[in-house]
Nucleic acid binder design. Sequence first.
DNA 1: GACTGGCACTCACCGTTTCGGAGTGCCAGC
DNA 2: GCTGGCACTCCGAAACGGTGAGTGCCAGTC
Lengths: 340, 340
Amino acid sequence: MSLDDRKLEVLRAIVEDYVSTQEPVGSRALVERHNLRVSPATVRNDMAVLEEEGYLRQPHTSAGRVPTDKGYRLFVDKLSRIKPLTPAERRAIERFLVGAVDLDDVVHRTVRLLAQLTRQVAIVQYPSLSRSKVRHLELISISTTRLMVVMITDTGRVEQRLVDVPAPLGADDVVELRAAMNEALVGRWLTDTPTVVPGLHDQVRPELSGAMASLSTVLLETLVERGEERVTIAGTANLARANMLDFAGSLRPVLEALEEEVIILKLFGQVRQTSAHVRIGDENEFEDLRTTSVVATGYGPRDTMVGGLGVLGPTRMDYPGTIATVRAVARYLGDVLEGS
Amino acid sequence: MSLDDRKLEVLRAIVEDYVSTQEPVGSRALVERHNLRVSPATVRNDMAVLEEEGYLRQPHTSAGRVPTDKGYRLFVDKLSRIKPLTPAERRAIERFLVGAVDLDDVVHRTVRLLAQLTRQVAIVQYPSLSRSKVRHLELISISTTRLMVVMITDTGRVEQRLVDVPAPLGADDVVELRAAMNEALVGRWLTDTPTVVPGLHDQVRPELSGAMASLSTVLLETLVERGEERVTIAGTANLARANMLDFAGSLRPVLEALEEEVIILKLFGQVRQTSAHVRIGDENEFEDLRTTSVVATGYGPRDTMVGGLGVLGPTRMDYPGTIATVRAVARYLGDVLEGS
DNA sequence: GACTGGCACTCACCGTTTCGGAGTGCCAGC
DNA sequence: GCTGGCACTCCGAAACGGTGAGTGCCAGTC
C-alpha cells in the first residue's frame, strides 16, 4: 500500500515540528503551522494510517504523534531536501584550519568545528593506515640496542614505536637498515607490507638479520595489524543539552559506548565516500546506541577515501542540516589533505 | 573555638555515611551504625555545633545533615586514614602496562585504569615538555622545500612538525642542519632552548641560514611556547552514574569544562610530587567545577615530577580510597617511565 | 469517494490536599 | 554534661479533581 502525497506531506510536517519543538504534535497545531489545505479531521485520518503503517506512534492514547525510527528513515530518504549552509557556517568551515601545524592539529580542529556547527557529538577518524602509503621510514637510535622507528604516511600520519634489537648496532648498521626498509616500502600501500616485509631479511648483511627481524615484527604487529585506527571525539557536552528528554533516562550507556574505540570505529564500517550514511535508532548495531542516530561520511583527497567522520545525536535531530554540515566539512577536509 | 574529639568523630561518621548512602544522615541512624556511646540527643547537639561552625548543613529544616565543602576539607585533612588498596587493585596496577608499545599507549592505559579503579573521571597529563630534556632531533625531508622535524624527549614524548624552508635543500644540507641542531640541543632542558636556538644560526653555512631560521621559529613557537602540554581523559561515563543527584541538575557544564584543555591543565597547576593535592567543591577556581572535587598528584621517575594525573568526581566521593589509588597509580607510572 | 464539522471520550498534566514519618530543637530531669 | 520526652517542621508520596489538548468516529456535504 502506498501513501499518497498528502500523507507524506503530513509526515514531513510532523518530523519537522517534532524536531524543533520536542513535543508530540497534534492535528490542529499541524494545520495551523504548515498550510495544509485540509481540516484537522482529515489530517487525523492520515495520521491514523501513518501510524498503522509504522511511521508514527503515540506516546499515550490521546496525545499527539511522534515519528518512529521508520518514520525518520522515510523522511531522510524521500522527504527532506538538503538544507544549504548558512554563510556563517560556510565561513567557519573555510577558516577553521588556518594555522594548523600538523595532522593532529587538523583533526582536532575538524572535530571541534563539527561539534560546534551541528551541536552534536562529533567524531573524526584519522586517515586509516590501511588506506595510506608509506612516505618515509626513519630509524633513530636511542641506545645501542634500542631503536625508534618512525613511519610517515602520505596522509600525514606519523607513528612511532620502540624496538629492542638483539645485538648492539653501530651507526652504519642503522643506516643500512634504514636504507633497506625505505627501499622496500616507500610508496607502497600499508596493506602490502605483509607480503613485502618477509623479503627484507635478505636485503641486509647477515649480521643484521636479527635486528631486521625485530623491526619487521614491530612493523607488522603494531602498525599493520592493530592500533592502526584512531579517532577523536568532541562535543560530548551536547549530549547533556536536551537533558534526559532524549536518551530515555540515562545517557550513561551512550557515554560508555563513545569511550569504546571499537564501537566507534564500526560506525564507519559501511561508510563510503559518496554522500552521507545515516543510521537511525534501531538501525544501529549496538544496543547502547539504539536511542541515537549517526550521520557519517568518508573523506579524502579527490575521490578517494582515507577515513570517516560524522556526528552522533538523538534520533530527534535536524537531519537535513546535519547531513549538509557533515558533507561540507568532509569535503573541505579532503581538500586540505590533498594540499599537504 | 575547637571541636572536641566526639564532635570530630561525629563529623567523620556523617561523611562516611553520606558518601556511601548519598542521603542526608540523621542522629538516630548515626548512633546505630557507628557505635558512638551516646544518645541521639547528644549527637544532635554536636551536629548543631558543627553546623554553626560551617562543617554541616541541612538541605531543609528537619532533614538529616550533609557535609559542606568545609566539612569534607576537615575530614580529608584530619579525620581520614589512608585506605590500603585491595589486593585486586594492587594486582590491576601492576599488570596494566604489560605490553605497552609506546608513551601514548602507556598514558592511555593509565588513564583507563585510573577511571576504572576510582569509578570517576580520570585525567592524565603527558610528561610536560618543559620538564623534559631533548634526547634527539630528526629531520626528514618530505620534499625539497619541506622538512619534518621530529623531536624525542627523555620522557618518551615524540613531537613532529612540518617546516617549509625558503630554498630547496639537498641531502647534505639536511645532514648538516640535523647535526647542528643535535649538537646544540641534545641533553638540554626544553626550557633552555630559547637561549640556545638563536645561536644555531652561526653553526651552519650561510646558505642554510634561511632554512635554519625557519626551523628555529617552528621549534620555539610550536614546541616550546604553545601546545606543549597534552592530557587524556577517560571515564566521563562515570559522571552520569549517580545520575543528577550530584551536580545539581546538569552535568553539562562539567562535560564542557572537561573538553577545555586549558581548564584541565590548570588543575595540575599547584600539584607537587609528594602526596596528593585535593581540591574540594568551592576551592576550585572554575565556576563550572564548583560541584566537583579533584584529587591530583604529580608523577615522574624517582623524586622528579614530569607531569600530573588525577581524578575528578562529585564532592561526595570516597576521598581516602581515591587518594590511595591516585597515589599508587602515580608512583607506578613514575617507575615505569624510569625504565624506558 | 474524499473531505469536513461535530461530538463524546480519553488521559497526561498540574495544582491542591492529605498524611505519615523522619528528623529536629528544646527542656526538664538525672 | 548527657538523656528521654515531646511538640513541631517539613519533605515526599499518594490521592484527587479539573483542564485542555488530542483523538476516533460518524453523519453530512461537495
